[in-house]
Write a protein that binds this DNA or RNA. Structure first.
Length: 581
DNA sequence: GCCGTTTTCGGCCCGACTGTTTTCAGTCG
């Protein structure tokens, strides 16, 4: 059973317990466990097989450790079977309607016998819902609206898309007179790969002009609520945007509060409590006395903490790091010196080889690798060995004309379904840089896929594995691959692993990056550009790496050329074909 | 169900807004 499946079991248990009105802290324990398990890079199957002590994991105690063990060994959990028998599965969907929580959903089920969304719709239309205690005509209307938007509202969007809205909204609100400070917080500010909603924070004395202007933002479809300090809208795209207006002495506290994550805030609050303080979105208080809140630094300082970069605020390692003075100096976009995965119009890219080199140079890159597809990737017009060799001759010519940038002769060689690589060893040996990627046979078993990738890492010509999980955010699940084993193999052979900066991919993900760092494996952040504009996605990859706690020294393509050359030489067993001028 | 620099029992973050109430429960973030 995979980690994701175990996490799903715990989430389902939490859903049912919540619906049944169980102790909310018990529900939270299951949610926390689901999160811990779902985010782990190490496989629980392996940990159990090794007899590891699972209670060392955060939020996993004796009881849940035993349940994980049972799930891994038998694939089932008696507790869940029993719970499922008590509540029809479709009833749980009721809780996913905005405005319906466990209490109201339970009332609908118990008093009206509603077990699915269609019955709910009919009951609202027949005005049976408003007769229930605690419900009314407005609730009924809200449910009907909620039914319409439930599907689109639950969809998270890519960080890159959220960034466009965030920039527009900032520009839109900045024009309001009296707006002193303006920031978009939430998971957007934490740089999470997908974003569920936007939290806009504004400092102004008077909230009305800001809210009036906000309602006029062209993408707003509906104002969901509007109060003194808080307003929520839904955009035509379905994205919800929350606006909070605060006074300047609360800006830091509110920024901390609305940046989150939820779990990070819970830790902050308990730390405040331990120190006899109270922290909320308005500030830090001792009793009713305001202590701090103007800036984030000020707020963290009252809790004996340094300022923590938003990307790390997930209650994973940041508090341990901060307490022991080991908070990393996170990687920045300006640290990036090279880009080692890009395509040209020789395969499925749009720009010519020369245009790509020109564009890379304009962006200040000191070294790049041209890595077109190999022949197996027929859809992209992958290159045969002789075509590659011809391209590399072209690169020889270009090297004479372009100074100040090193152009590596590379290839993105396909890892074949049956194992092995798509280009012969002799040709590969002449390349400066080889990315091996898996494009076919994505439905094979975890063992086979992991085996194919581990074998590729053992190949002397291969430098790195491209997009190592193959996922496309919101479109395609990752293939079954044991990342732990891949990282161990990369460590053993001194190879590198890619963090693909395409906003749709972003794999390895943050947790994988952290695990690679622990194993001393260097990450390569690459754009996988298919056009000159494609080179601009590097910043998304940097953001993901920051979430994994990576510093510049953990990333191969931050190295100056001379250092990079040495590392590459070592990775290829002391054999470097050219790369030098 | 977890967890321990107040604790192995008794806590577990805190506030805004809405709708349905007549002082508050439920939901959300």
């Amino acid at each position: 059973m995979t980690n994701a499946e175990i996490a799903a079991v715990f989430d389902e248990i939490a859903d049912i317990l919540e619906f049944q009105g169980e102790n909310p802290f018990r529900v939270r324990a299951y949610r926390n466990a689901a999160r811990t398990v779902g985010e782990m890079a190490e496989s629980l199957e392996h940990l159990v097989a090794q007899g590891a002590d699972l209670t060392q994991l955060p939020g996993i105690g004796k009881d849940l450790a035993e349940k994980i063990k049972t799930l891994v060994e038998t694939g089932r959990l008696e507790q869940l079977d029993k719970l499922r028998a008590q509540v029809p599965e479709s009833v749980l969907q009721l809780m996913h309607i905005p405005g319906l929580g466990p209490r109201k959903a339970a009332a609908l089920y118990k008093q009206l016998g509603i077990t699915n969304l269609e019955q709910l719709r009919r009951a609202c239309q027949e005005h049976r819902v408003q007769k229930l205690r605690g419900f009314g005509a407005k609730t009924e209307e809200a449910i009907l609206r909620g039914l319409q938007v439930a599907e689109v509202a639950s969809k998270r969007i890519l960080w890159a898309e959220a960034d466009q809205f965030a920039q527009e909204i900032k520009a839109h609100l900045a024009q309001v007179p009296g707006v002193e400070q303006l920031e978009v917080a939430g998971s957007y500010r934490r740089g999470k790969e997908t974003v569920g909603d936007l939290d806009v924070l504004v400092v102004a004395e008077d909230s009305d002009p800001v809210m009036d202007r906000f309602a006029q933002y062209h993408a707003v479809a509906e104002v969901l609520l509007r109060g003194e300090t808080k307003m929520s809208v839904r955009l035509h795209s379905g994205l919800q945007v929350d606006l909070r207006v605060v006074h300047h002495q609360s800006f830091g506290a509110a920024l901390v509060y609305f940046t989150g994550s939820k779990q990070h805030n819970v830790v902050l609050r308990s730390r405040a409590k331990q120190r006899g303080l109270k922290i909320n979105e308005y500030g830090v208080y001792r009793g009713s006395e305001y202590i701090a809140g103007r800036t984030e630094e000020e707020v963290y300082a009252t809790l004996d903490l340094p300022w923590i970069p938003p990307e790390l605020r997930e209650a994973r390692w940041e508090f341990d790091w901060a307490d022991s003075g080991r908070l990393p100096k996170l990687l920045e976009l300006k640290d990036i010196r090279g880009d080692l995965h890009m395509h040209t119009n020789a395969t499925d890219g749009k720009a010519t080889l020369e245009e790509m080199v020109q564009a890379a140079k304009q962006r200040g890159l000191k070294y790049i690798a041209i890595t077109d597809h190999s022949k197996r990737v027929t859809m992209a017009g992958g290159l045969k060995a002789e075509e590659l060799l011809a391209q590399w001759e072209q690169i020889d010519q270009l090297r004479k004309r372009f100074r100040g940038i090193h152009i590596l002769k590379g290839v993105e060689v396909d890892i074949l379904e049956r194992g092995g690589l798509d280009i012969d060893d002799q040709t590969l040996a002449q390349a400066d840089w080889v990315v091996a990627s898996l494009h076919y046979g994505q439905n094979q078993s975890e063992d086979r896929i992991t085996g194919r990738i581990v074998d590729a890492l053992a190949h002397p010509a291969v430098c790195a594995i491209g997009h190592p999980t193959g996922r496309l955010l919101g479109r395609r699940e990752r293939y079954a691959v044991d990342i732990q084993r891949v990282i161990e193999a990369a460590a053993e052979h001194g190879k590198f692993l890619e963090l693909n900066a395409n906003p749709l991919r972003l794999d390895l993900d943050d947790m994988h990056c952290a695990l690679a760092r622990e194993h001393g494996v260097l990450i390569v952040i690459s754009t996988d550009a298919h056009s000159t504009e494609g080179l601009n996605v590097m910043r998304y990859g940097v953001l993901q790496a920051r979430r994994g706690g990576l510093e510049a020294r953990h990333v191969l393509n931050t190295r100056p050329w001379s250092q990079f050359e040495k590392l590459l030489w070592r990775a290829r067993g002391g054999k470097l074909s050219t790369g030098k001028k």
